[in-house]
């Protein structure tokens, strides 16, 4: 009897759990693992999207290096690193006319980053800001409009720093009047003292989850390098958490998506890119359970609730986009110098 029941279960399984006709392998950041984002595409195209998370462009490229051509179909990449990944032959050109960039915020088309030698290798999908997040019941919001307040002594021991050297060094640079595009080995020398001062005033340097936890539990009252991506998922439970772009400016992070070179399913891969950059895909991606961020496609606004738009500061985007600078794009020597300065700061 048990055998018959087991056999019936095995026979019934394919019917109960239909297997998709095709699979798409995506190398992504954690916001693309949300079923609410993937399921509509899977259902519409009878496909299973297999996702693998990675952090850091070098780590993503190492995964591609260790894979056979055709293993991966699409890849999410830091927009400022698209040229680097494309130059390594990891991205395939995609037809620009197939992308809805006409509906994008003009600043987010980012042809300088996504288009190389006239060929489009990726398309911007999401953006946000690395600025200052804070608990407005614990700090004076007016103070947060000026980066100098962070090292004034008033908030010593109440500051957390986001553990990623690029945006934080970019912010420290802005505080010193150095544009992110001008950050090089020479300019870093001038950032050492203010970075060390910021470290001295801070309690911890931590990753995304630890920074969120610290802000939510009152371990720190301010996170330098934070932004909507840090506070938005906590907004419902803790409306006191806020963020701003200080008068010195903030950094804009952007992520792009492209088709991996060597994919055996270029049409399906492009279809996925089109879905992600469509209004529907953009609205889901903006509110991903891992982290929120602004959609590049303005038409997603029609699908977002007023509450979600308020959390994302939809109406403030013209002002924010004008005041925020792109991430620094360091050459290899500057990158190493930045890492060394960061290491020195952590071990001071």
């Amino acid at each position: 009897m048990k055998r018959i029941a087991a056999l019936a279960l095995v026979c019934a399984t394919p019917a109960a759990f239909p297997v998709a006709a095709e699979e798409l392998n995506a190398l992504v950041w954690c916001d693309h693992t949300d079923p609410a984002l993937l399921e509509p595409f899977e259902a519409a195209n009878d496909v299973t999207v297999n996702v693998k998370e990675y952090e850091g462009t070098a780590a993503g490229m190492a995964i591609l290096d260790q894979s056979a051509p055709g293993d991966w179909d699409v890849m999410v990449v830091d927009s400022v690193d698209v040229a680097r990944v494309a130059a390594a032959g990891k991205l395939a050109p995609i037809p620009a006319e197939a992308l809805p960039t006409g509906d994008f915020f003009p600043e987010l088309v980012m042809a300088a980053q996504n288009v190389i030698d006239g060929k489009t290798y990726a398309v911007t999908e999401k953006f946000g800001y690395n600025t200052i997040s804070y608990d407005k019941t614990k700090v004076d919001p007016a103070d947060m409009e000026d980066m100098a307040a962070l090292t004034s002594g008033k908030y010593d021991g109440k500051i957390g720093i986001y553990d990623y050297y690029l945006p934080v060094l970019g912010l420290v640079g802005l505080g010193q009047g150095v544009a992110t595009a001008d950050l090089n080995v020479g300019a870093l020398e001038g950032l050492k003292a203010p970075l060390m001062a910021l470290r001295k005033a801070s309690k911890q340097v931590s990753d995304v989850v630890s920074s969120q936890t610290a802000l939510a539990t009152g371990e720190v009252d301010i996170v330098v390098g934070g932004g909507e991506w840090l506070t938005a998922v906590l907004a419902a439970d803790n409306p006191n958490l806020d963020w701003t772009i200080p008068k010195q400016g903030g950094l804009r992070w952007t992520q792009s998506i492209g088709v991996v070179a060597g994919t055996t399913k270029p049409d399906l891969a492009l279809k996925f890119v089109q879905y992600i950059t469509s209004a529907e895909g953009q609205a889901a991606l903006a509110q991903s359970s891992c982290y929120w961020g602004m959609p590049a496609n303005m038409k997603a606004g029609a699908l977002l609730s007023d509450e979600a738009k308020a959390v994302l500061r939809w109406d403030m985007q013209p002002d924010y986009l004008a005041r925020a600078q792109l991430y620094p794009v360091p050459d290899a020597a500057t990158d190493t110098a930045m890492q060394d300065l960061w290491t020195e700061m952590l071990n001071q």
Partner: peptide, 14 residues
């Protein structure tokens, strides 16, 4: 180990 991770994350200084 944290320093090792720092070398690999973005810079790829293997």
């Amino acid at each position: 180990p944290q320093l090792i991770m720092l070398q690999m994350g973005r810079g790829g200084n293997f």
